[in-house]
Nucleic acid binder design. Structure first.
Lengths: 194, 194
DNA sequence: TTTGGCATGTAATCCGTTACATGATTAG
DNA sequence: CTAATCATGTAACGGATTACATGCCAAA
């Protein structure tokens, strides 16, 4: 069975590993660290997932262990194989799969009438603070990416992923403000008027 | 000696069940159907998850089976208990947990330079079509909610969840257009000039 | 000296999805 | 008659998270 065929349950960690290794050899530790400083806002990986996945990918021939560069540090570096490149390119050419993301904020807000307006306001204030903090995080990631990838061809795509994040964060901030206002006007005004 | 005392892994299906049952008795089938017509864009449930969860919740005393209303249909209705209401209110009063949602579109775009600008354009065109389709779906859900919940106090929160969805969809549409333009101008122009 | 980061893994486990299995009822 | 929807579950399975376990190195 070809490795690019996605079964009912795709291990999507494979592709971010392939993508990172396509830039050059790296260890499992490097892969996880890379996600934290570049894709953190739309894709995270953890060690418990990456190390076993790297092992499986080596068995499948998508990656292979390469010579230790840093002998002092006990690093296990991997490099992408031709089969791995093929697999990555095939995946990139496929349409993306969009999944419904569970949003706990919206779920709580959906049932907010059961807990009263003050509770809803608290949620929205948290959401606004989160959205603002997000903007700082994204700006920091953008700075990091700009310094590490000065070439335009690469950077355009990186910046696009940051760009949509910033736009969404701004929309969320505005939506929080608007919804807070609406709750205050229509729900709090009525109860204080009584 | 117990080593793994508290695996911190919340079954979040519990809360949407409690929230729906807080409006009145319902079956597992009803709960799943309700998600499809109201929370579909930020929270989905499937049968394989709901039925076992309802059973566990009955054991915990959060819900209880109630008299069959429709004897012809083989429906098993549940109602929320006082303990269930307590649990729901407690959860609503807690801050929400925000998780990093994996976004496959952004991951593919992040590595788009490996596959060339035409591939990226294809992804963004798909993303734009999805965002536009999303707006239709959200409008339909909004209509449905308006008809079923005419009371302002309920509706304000429902509409807020739709509102943020529509705003995000619009931002995504615009971002697709802008990014498509940028790719055409900076990448396609150069390569045709060569 | 002790803290923190580097570095690699395994174990436990539970959530969430898909597929399977069954049967009744309703609409066309 | 037949297809779709209603309705309830179980089985299988993999993905993803968290905790556990270990040890080295550099810097305060």
């Amino acid at each position: 069975m070809p490795t690019h065929e996605h079964p009912k349950r795709a291990n999507r960690s494979k592709f971010i590993i392939l993508g990172i290794l396509a830039r050059g050899p790296a260890s499992g530790y490097d892969v996880v660290k890379a996600t934290r400083t570049s894709t953190a806002y739309f894709w995270n990986e953890n060690f418990g997932q990456i190390y076993p996945t790297l092992g499986k990918m080596a068995e499948e021939g998508l990656v292979q262990r390469c010579a230790q560069i840093d002998a002092a540090r006990n690093k296990t570096n991997y490099e992408i194989t031709n089969l791995g490149r093929e697999c990555l390119h095939h995946w990139l050419a496929e349409p993306y799969q969009s999944a419904v993301e569970r949003n706990e904020l919206l779920l709580k807000l959906f049932f907010a009438n059961l807990a009263g307006p003050e509770n809803a306001l608290k949620l929205l204030q948290q959401a606004k603070a989160d959205a603002l903090a997000y903007q700082s995080v994204l700006s920091a990631i953008r700075e990091n990416l700009r310094q590490r990838h000065p070439e335009k061809r690469d950077r355009l795509y990186y910046e696009a992923t940051i760009d949509i994040g910033l736009r969404v964060a701004k929309v969320q901030t505005q939506w929080c403000d608007d919804t807070i206002c609406e709750i205050r006007e229509t729900l709090l005004a009525q109860s204080s008027g009584q």
